[in-house]
Design a binder for these strands. Structure first.
Lengths: 191, 191
DNA sequence: TCTGCCATGTAATATGTTACATGATTGT
DNA sequence: ACAATCATGTAACATATTACATGGCAGA
């Protein structure tokens, strides 16, 4: 039940149309909750029906016309309640780890190539996050002179650092995995 | 498309019935790919129909009777091909990070309690992984004298270390998040 | 007018979750 | 006989993915 709350958060940050939301889900919000435009349009319909959001500048029932949405008080309340609620962390679900486990049974053919590819992807993502951090959360040359970060900025920086920590973890783990597979002779294991 | 391959891997490690698989998906395999018994039974049916697995000790079409499955050569080939294939890492999808982003807009009421709860859960999971590592992959007092780990063991250890690294990352991140929210006064942000 | 892109949407399918149903086996 | 548990399954629903459809608008 996270997608509706992701959309409410995005719309509170800035009222948007479906396509604008889709683009924001390809960047900032999408860094920790991805969604396609089909999901977003469907969910916008539901949220409107529930009275959590409403369309601005109406009188345009046409199909190809832009439709902006804003959050209603009921939507803000719903989101506030969700933030305060309980939700256990989901168990990890990672196809790459599964493939490594499978490789322990049927052999590692083709795996190192894939590990190198993933390493490059994670390094690239890490670099992107670090750029964002330098741009949006740089402390400046004299931290004491800078204004104290707002609570909202502090939270957004924390979320970004989770992304950075995660990517760094994968980069380190993949590097170690490749180092080992270079050292050990990697013959087929599945005989 | 990972669940069928998770099941093929599990069945190659050891032929099992549906319920036995379910239990293994609550432990070892479930640490990086979870599944309920309903998913497993449905997928077992499909895999059998595709000719990837077959039921052992047949002649028992009854409902409550145990049914063991084993992997056929076609199933092993399918799995080998999947291991060698390409599959991009999925973007992160984490409700807790989403909630922190939402909290930046509507306020942090109730969040610290939840962060502490998650911290305890991750610490517990980390401890469990470390127990498994000590039990199954301990180098012993004299590593040089111990037999070299097999390629399969090396891979399984790597997968376990990914789990350990992930949990440790969350423990550290949550600890830092709590330390900051103790320092900074956490007033409602959504005014 | 034609092409390309902006924008919203439908349809079909796949996967995952929750609740419930049925039969078999074992111990009391 | 009964209850508890093992074991396999169905049904309904929710969510996510993929492919396609429709209309508006701007410029060549």
């Amino acid at each position: 039940m996270s997608l509706p709350h992701a959309i409410l958060t995005a719309l509170l940050e800035r009222p948007s149309s479906g396509l604008e939301l889709t683009r924001r889900f390809d960047r900032s919000i999408g860094y920790f909750w991805s969604a396609t435009h089909q999901q977003i349009y469907r969910e916008l319909g539901r949220l409107e029906e529930s009275g959590y959001i409403r369309a601005l500048a109406p009188e345009q029932p046409a199909r190809g016309r832009k439709k902006e949405y804003e959050v209603l008080p009921a939507g803000r309340e719903e989101l506030t309640g969700w933030v305060a609620g309980r939700e256990d962390p989901k168990p990890v679900r990672d196809p790459l780890l599964l493939r490594m486990r499978a490789a322990a049974v049927v052999g590692t053919d083709g795996l190192p190539v894939e590990l190198r590819r993933h390493l490059a992807l994670h390094e690239s993502q890490l670099a992107e996050y670090r750029d964002i951090e330098a741009r949006d959360f740089s402390p400046g040359p004299n931290p004491d002179a800078a204004p104290a970060a707002s609570e909202a900025d502090r939270l957004r920086h924390l979320v970004l650092r989770a992304g950075i920590d995660l990517e760094r973890m994968w980069v380190e783990w993949l590097t170690e995995a490749l180092r080992e597979s270079d050292t050990a002779p990697a013959g087929p294991e599945g005989a």
